[in-house]
């Protein structure tokens, strides 16, 4: 009886979704002309990225410069998730000493391979978030790649420990530098998270004003937070 009701409800929701999407033709040009006097939002972003910001990746310019406040909110949400997980899976101080990480016996091949691969993965992640304004990539992608490298080392080795004090310091300094760069934008351009106008040459590494510096700070913060989440989750003792 409940199944019949749910199928009818899903059919109704599906009908209304199809009815909404049906009137949006696929692939039609909704940006309009870029050089007109009243451009749309996307037209304004596309035409002013090269002149004002000198950044080759339009998505980086939108995420960091034009919609920088949303990125600040997203970094806050990740920080709240890490703090929430750490406080939900709370251990008392007496049990802190004899907790051990998930330890599966790993062969010689895995141990040697992990030790060779870990610097290469970390280098790839740092490359991705340093060149976020030239190629597809950026802070979030690069931070996730570095966290994956740490996960490989945490699973393979029993004695590999991450120092929680150093990670807390890196996260705090990265978050604070995001806010301080925003205040600098307030002083120089009269808007929070404004950019230094017209600095550097297009497609070179030192272009884009303050945008690469913000992405480097975001990259470090995301990498450290995701490593913290994985470290907490791997240390739970199961009931059995």
């Amino acid at each position: 009886m409940k199944k019949v009701f749910i199928i009818i409800l899903l059919a109704l929701i599906g009908y209304f979704l199809v009815d909404t999407v049906y009137n949006i033709p696929f692939g039609e040009n909704r940006i309009g002309s870029i050089e007109s006097d009243h451009p749309t939002v996307a037209g304004y972003y596309l035409s002013n990225t090269v002149e004002k910001s000198r950044v080759a990746n339009v998505i980086t310019a939108i995420v960091v410069n034009y919609r920088g406040l949303d990125t600040l909110g997203e970094v806050t949400v990740l920080f709240l998730a890490t703090t929430g997980i750490a406080s939900i899976l709370y251990r008392r101080k007496e049990e802190e000493e004899d907790v051990e990480r998930l330890n599966l016996p790993s062969s010689m091949l895995i141990r040697t391979g992990a030790r060779v691969l870990f610097p290469i993965i970390a280098l790839l992640g740092i490359y991705v978030f340093i060149h976020g304004h030239l190629t597809p990539g950026g802070g979030f992608q690069g931070g996730t790649i570095v966290a994956t490298g740490f996960l490989l080392m945490l699973i393979s080795y029993k004695g590999f420990n991450t120092n929680h004090n150093i990670m807390a310091w890196i996260e705090s300094i990265a978050g604070l530098s995001f806010i301080l760069i925003g205040v600098w934008g307030l002083i120089s351009d009269n808007t929070f998270l404004g950019n230094i106008p017209e600095v550097g040459k297009l497609n070179s590494l030192l272009s884009g004003g303050l945008i690469p510096i913000i992405y480097i700070a975001v990259g470090f913060k995301v990498a450290v937070e995701l490593t913290g989440i994985l470290d907490i989750l791997l240390k739970i003792k199961p009931n059995k």
Binding site: L46, V58, I59, L202
Partner: peptide, 9 residues
């Protein structure tokens, strides 16, 4: 958009 390319210069 029909015939469009990725938004990277």
């Amino acid at each position: 958009i029909r015939g469009g390319t990725a938004p990277i210069f």
